[in-house]
């Protein structure tokens, strides 16, 4: 017996779809989709709907807002017009997207050294647009655990460098994120449905610029 739900390429649903299993859309859905599992909009799929699901994978066209309790993935060829809210958002090369992204929950693992950045005031930003200042207040206050800064640390030096090979910038292989998040699906399953309704607002750390286009 087929376990997962598929809406074939000629199928057109107008209305609301609720479910607790994976849904694959190859046809068209107008309305709303609420799933506790994974929604896949295939290449031929067109979804004009508000979407709530645990995971959403888009390869076709989606017009509408997408809220996921785990992840939203836009694969190559995807076209999405709408806003995304999810703890994990992945945009592949070749995906097209217009809208805003809001990372809900904790988001991907925070990095330890970020404390210093968080404390850097938004005031500082924009204040010095046009001048190269002679000195910049160093952001160290919020790093109690950081080693004491050198007082003679140079503040502003920008020059063209012909970098000798030995001085080349170290190759930083960015640490691959542990895929731990994807493993806790079973634990989340039960709560997923409720969470879609009462979603905690993430306090925004900084004022968000909206109007700039």
């Amino acid at each position: 017996m087929p376990a997962s739900t598929t809406l074939g390429p000629t199928i057109h649903v107008r209305g609301r779809i609720l479910g607790e299993e994976d849904l694959r859309v190859e046809g068209r859905v107008d309305g709303a989709i609420e799933l506790s599992e994974t929604l896949i909009v295939e290449e031929s799929g067109v979804v004009l709907a508000e979407i709530q699901a645990r995971d959403v994978v888009v390869r076709g066209i989606v017009i509408g807002n997408v809220t996921a309790t785990d992840s939203v993935t836009l694969d190559a060829g995807a076209k999405l017009m709408g806003d995304i809210e999810a703890p994990r958002v992945i945009l592949a090369d070749g995906a097209a997207f217009k809208g805003s992204v809001k990372v809900t929950g904790a988001g991907p693992r925070p990095r330890a050294r970020k404390t210093s950045v968080a404390s850097a005031s938004p005031v500082a930003r924009g204040a010095g647009r046009t001048t190269v200042a002679g000195s910049i207040p160093r952001v160290r206050a919020a790093r109690p655990d950081a080693p004491p800064p050198q007082e003679d640390e140079p503040t502003v030096v920008v020059r063209r460098q012909d970098v000798a090979p030995a001085q080349k910038a170290p190759k930083k292989a960015p640490p691959k994120p542990a895929k731990a998040a994807s493993k806790k699906k079973t634990a989340k399953k039960k709560t997923a449905k409720k969470r879609t309704k009462a979603r905690p607002k993430v306090p925004s750390r900084k004022k968000r610029k909206v109007s700039r286009r």
């Binding site: 074939g8 779809i17 479910g19």
Partner: peptide, 19 residues
């Protein structure tokens, strides 16, 4: 593939199609 509406799925609306 045929279209399948799984056992936990509820569709409230209209379904049209040619399959």
């Amino acid at each position: 593939a045929n279209t399948v509406i799984g056992s936990t799925i509820v569709i409230d609306g209209e379904i049209s199609g040619e399959e």
